[in-house]
């Protein structure tokens, strides 16, 4: 296979059918493998490394290998199986991992699906150079963009990214006429203070954001850490309580259409 052919292959971690949490309608979510961030609370730890990984789940004894190179055609064929279910608003979501690290391959996948009128949602942390978005502009149903904190230090430290890049990309996407929905994970001890929330609101509002989803932290990914033989730094952290969620929601709701997942 030629180098250019290799580029078109998607590095897929998992394909999830009847995905109801990643955009409107019934969707098939392709989780790609490889991420340029390293958030310690991540609930999809198997998608961080670009290399294939074998997870052994102690409860069920099941072994699952995450990570396989798939052609856009093969992924599209699987996505198309569910076309009857998508209706007017459903379709494909590419999540991860960081889909924008494989923007060319994603673009190739989208091109096949566009022929069948199937639309795509991109779920990204947007911590990539703006140029990466170029091939996707004008073709994406919605960009779901993570925004994790107002703090430059937290972004640079725990998360491993550059906050300015993220907010800049959000501003540019909106400026380019893209539909953007910002997703804020509520991580206890990281971004659940009123101050952080208010600052995030200011930054996002300034970038032109209209809609924000709040995603309260959960520990459902902890089994995956164990199965990877890793320790989960957030194993002992409880999800934010209902009161915290509703307090933060009221702050965000002052600026945006705000939903709690």
């Amino acid at each position: 296979m030629t180098d250019s052919g290799e580029e078109k292959l998607l590095n897929v971690s998992e394909i999830q059918h009847f995905s109801t949490g990643d955009g409107p309608g019934i969707r098939t979510t392709v989780f790609v493998k490889g991420c340029n961030l390293h958030c310690p609370w991540c609930h999809n730890p198997e998608t961080v490394s670009p290399l294939p990984q074998k997870l052994v789940f102690s409860g069920s004894g099941k072994t699952v290998i995450y990570g396989r190179k798939m052609s856009a055609e093969a992924v599209a064929a699987e996505v198309l199986e569910d076309r009857e279910f998508y209706g007017a608003d459903g379709g494909l979501t590419v999540s991860g991992g960081e889909p924008m690290l494989q923007a060319d391959a994603v673009s190739g996948l989208m091109r096949i699906l566009e022929r069948d009128g199937i639309r795509t949602v991109i779920d990204t942390a947007a911590c990539v150079p703006w140029e990466k978005f170029a091939p996707l502009l004008g073709r994406v149903q919605t960009f779901l963009v993570d925004y994790k904190t107002s703090s430059d230090e937290t972004y640079a430290g725990q998360i491993g990214g550059d906050r300015e890049t993220v907010i800049d990309n959000i501003r540019r996407l909106i400026g380019a006429g893209e539909t953007v929905r910002v997703r804020v994970p509520l991580i206890p001890g990281v971004n659940t203070s009123d101050t952080d929330a208010s600052l995030m609101c200011g930054q996002l509002a300034k970038a032109g954001v209209k809609t924000v989803d709040l995603l309260p932290f959960h520990r459902l990914g902890s089994a995956k850490y164990t199965a990877m033989g890793k320790e989960y730094a957030y194993a002992g952290i409880s999800p934010p309580d209902a009161e915290t969620v509703s307090r933060l929601r009221s702050i965000f709701a002052g600026y945006f259409d705000c939903f709690v997942e």
Binding site: I15, Q16, H17, F18, I26, T28, E81, D82, F85
Partner: peptide
């Protein structure tokens, strides 16, 4: 193993 849409298909 492929989710409810595949089951239903």
């Amino acid at each position: 193993r492929r989710g409810v849409t595949s089951t239903f298909l």
